[in-house]
Design a protein around this nucleic acid. Structure first.
Lengths: 211, 211
DNA sequence: GTCTATATCGGGATAGAC
DNA sequence: GTCTATCCCGATATAGAC
């Protein structure tokens, strides 16, 4: 593997593990067994590494978000879709650990973040609309808007919340937590029996385990 | 006012405005028109300032959380109570901007954070139990547990979510946003007409405006 | 209590040899 | 492409005079 590529991979790993601010360029070089000078030959410091990592994240996420929402989307499909979104976010989770820090340091990334978030909410809204048209979802337009906001909040902030609580949870559980919470928040507005809820909860759990 | 006191107040303001990592001890001294040496005479660096600020936050929050939950608590009272909690959190909001950073740097604070969060969830749970016993709240114990988690998530993470979206909102609106979202998430499980919901939403809005 | 001056340390960044 | 050596800078921290 080329050095430039290795730098990105190792940086991503270190950032995810220890948080962006706690990893210096020297740390990265050390971990790679190369000299700081060499690192700077490939990337002009942490800034350009982070920019490159964000570009990777962004392009993958956009691909997922552009997958056209089927107009007879099922709830299962919706959650499968959410799972894809979460998996990518999780691979680049350091970006979400303290977004405010990162956004302050890198204006470009802040814009990209907002764009992606907006697009996510659009997609959520489209999905909910589809449910509504299938008579699966109750409630009016205003409520749908609130649900979208709530899903956005859960989707982006659940990991931080669990971090705050100091809970040690592994990768799969942590994605499941987010999905389960979304399901829970969504259920009251869905035309759905308690049995169907529990079944879906189980399905989602298994999906996460496989992944 | 004594210098030691002024240091705390100005530090709090700067931290809230610019984020803890972006404010150096020199910045604080400069803002106060005193020398860095003088600052160090009173507090041994940012660490001890932050520790002192956290202690203030903690003692105020604990006082609020210890206010015994009335066993015939009304929804209005519950939201008034939440408002108090949010106001204090908001005064020390820099602590919540990137809790993971702060928790990593200051182990003591991390423990304090977790204790407070735990206590908050306990209080929420007590309130919900009271609603349940008054036949205001539907659902079983497990659902109540999930509601508590969801409220905790909304209460602590809503500000960050809006920061992430890059929305500029002022202090009052931002507290109202959190309360409104909690109300929205709670409603489906409450024995409550749509009119009662909107009325309460309005009441909460006014409460926030006054505050 | 407060100041000035200075020491220290770590991270970011570059020059030049190989 | 990679290394060593070095520089720069900002933040933290202390000493000693007033």
């Amino acid at each position: 593997m080329k050095t430039a590529e290795r730098i990105l991979l190792v940086s991503l790993e270190l950032f995810n593990q220890q948080g962006e601010t706690n990893v210096s360029s020297v740390d990265i070089a050390l971990e790679l067994d190369i000299s700081p000078g060499n690192l700077y030959y490939h990337y002009k410091g942490k800034d350009s590494i982070i920019t490159a990592l964000f570009a990777m994240y962004q392009s993958r996420m956009i691909k997922i978000l552009n997958a056209p929402a089927n107009d007879s989307l099922s709830l299962e499909e919706f959650f499968y879709y959410l799972l894809l979104v979460f998996q990518v976010s999780h691979e680049y989770r350091f970006l979400y650990r303290n977004p405010s820090e990162i956004a302050e340091k890198y204006a470009k990334i802040a814009r990209g973040f907002r764009r992606i978030l907006k697009q996510k909410e659009n997609v959520f809204d489209t999905c909910l609309k589809s449910f509504y048209e299938q008579d699966l979802l109750l409630g009016d337009t205003q409520q749908r808007q609130q649900i979208v906001e709530l899903i956005g909040l859960i989707a982006t902030q659940t990991p931080n919340y669990h971090l705050l609580k100091g809970e040690e949870i592994n990768d799969g559980d942590y994605i499941f937590q987010s999905l389960a919470t979304i399901l829970f928040a969504l259920t009251p507005y869905m035309q759905m029996s308690k049995e169907a809820y529990q079944e879906l909860d189980e399905t989602v759990r298994n999906l996460c385990k496989e992944a």
